[in-house]
Amino acid sequence: MNKKAQSDISHEFIIWIPRIIVLVLAAGFVIFLVNIPITKNFEIDKLQQDILRQRFVYNENCLAYKDENNVYPGIIDKLKFNQLNLDNCFKANDRVGVNLNLITNDVKTINLNKNVAEKLNFCFDTKHFACTNYTYYILFKDDKSLERGLLNIAMVKLK
C-alpha cells in the first residue's frame, strides 16, 4: 500500500469519528424519549388489584348473592363473609394481602394473606408496596329484605 492510500484511509477514519459520536447520541436521545413516558404510565400492580377486588362482589364463589337461578353482583350474601370461604375464593398469590371490612349494623373484618395484609400501614412507602382502597355501596340479604351496607376492600402488594 502506498503512502497516499494509507493517508486516505486514516483521513476517512478521522472523519468517521464525529459521525459515529453523533449517531450514538441521536440513538440514545431517541431511546431516552421513548422509555420515559412508557414506564411512567403503566401501573400494572394497581390494575391487577382492581381486577382481583372486583372478584369479591361479582363472583358467586366469593360474596355475590345467588338464588336458585341468578347471581346478583353487588348484593352480598352475609353467610359467605367468613374466613374459610374468602380464603378459598381469593387464591391470587402470596404477595397480595387483603383487608375486608363489611360495615352494616356492625363491622366485620377479615384479612386474607395476613402476613402481607399487616403491611397496609406501610402504604406510604410506594417503592416497596402498591396499595388500593375502595368502598362499595352494597346491599345484603337479611332474611327476605335487602339492607344497605358498605364493603371496604384495601389491598397491598409487595413489589
Binding site: 353487588g74 346491599l139 335487602l146
Partner: peptide, 21 residues
C-alpha cells in the same frame, strides 16, 4: 383502557343505588 376496568366498581355503586329499598 385502564379506566374501563374501574367502571365495574362504579357500576356496582350505581346499580345498588337504584335498587336501594
Amino acid at each position: 383502557r385502564i379506566n374501563q376496568i374501574n367502571l365495574a366498581d362504579i357500576q356496582i355503586n350505581l346499580v345498588n343505588y337504584l335498587r336501594t329499598p
